[in-house]
């Protein structure tokens, strides 16, 4: 564990907590894409299958449970909780996210580190996470103005993988044989997809107004 990865995990945790805070306290999911949340639930479900087979650390297992629990409960809230579901913008959240799942699965079957069930699903979760934010970014452009909590959520979610990139650079130089091209490229693509959001986020942030 290094400071970059810890910062990345804490940023990721913060993004989840901000979203849960918004949904649970003000009972609103305005501006939040249910489709992105569904993709993230699939990402964690396929990435953390090894939670039962390989134990890395208490921290690792605890965080996996947090991310699994939060992503599924956010989907449940947005789908079935009456008050929250009412604030879900179904008409605008129309990105065909299921069209993302199949290509990621095919790509994982073609490009992976090991051809085993767990490894292919793990690789699939990497590819899917890289594009999971797309429905949210599309929804963002359609709804133009979003509230600060949603803006913070997206900023933190985009930032965590950026910090992971620093972690990979650090591990590459400090650990022999630490080379994971698939993870690195997927992480880079994922972070680059946030580029224009970051641009507008900092513009607004510096201007001290909400994210538009």
């Amino acid at each position: 564990m290094n400071i970059f990865r810890l910062a990345g995990d804490m940023t990721h945790l913060a993004s989840v907590l901000v979203l849960l805070l918004k949904i649970h306290t003000i009972k609103s999911c305005a501006g939040v894409s249910l489709r992105t949340q569904e993709l993230y639930a699939i990402v964690f479900a396929t990435r953390y299958l090894d939670i039962f087979t390989s134990f890395v650390s208490v921290y690792n297992t605890f965080m996996k449970l947090v991310f699994l629990g939060s992503s599924f409960s956010i989907v449940w809230y947005m789908r079935y909780h009456k008050a929250v579901h009412r604030t879900y913008d179904r008409e605008q959240d129309t990105f065909r996210h299921w069209f993302l799942v199949l290509p990621c699965l095919v790509l994982a079957l073609l490009i992976h580190e090991k051809f085993t069930f767990l490894e292919v699903l793990w690789t699939f979760s990497l590819y899917l996470e890289a594009v999971a934010i797309l429905p949210q970014l599309v929804l963002l452009q359609r709804t133009r103005n979003i509230d600060n909590l949603t803006g913070q959520y997206i900023f933190l979610l985009g930032g965590y993988r950026g910090l992971y990139i620093l972690n990979w650079i650090y591990r590459y130089f400090t650990e022999p044989h630490f080379v994971h091209w698939i993870t690195w490229i997927a992480g880079l693509v994922q972070t680059l997809l946030y580029a224009d959001f970051f641009y507008y986020y900092f513009l607004r942030f510096i201007g001290g107004r909400g994210v538009e």
């Binding site: 990865r5 995990d9 990721h12 090894d50 390989s54 890395v56 650390s57 690792n60 965080m63 996996k64 991310f67 580190e113 090991k114 793990w122 992971y164 972690n167 994971h180 993870t183």
Partner: peptide, 10 residues
């Protein structure tokens, strides 16, 4: 670290 536990990241 053997490959099986290669995924030590979240």
């Amino acid at each position: 670290k053997d490959d099986a536990a290669a995924h030590d990241e979240l």
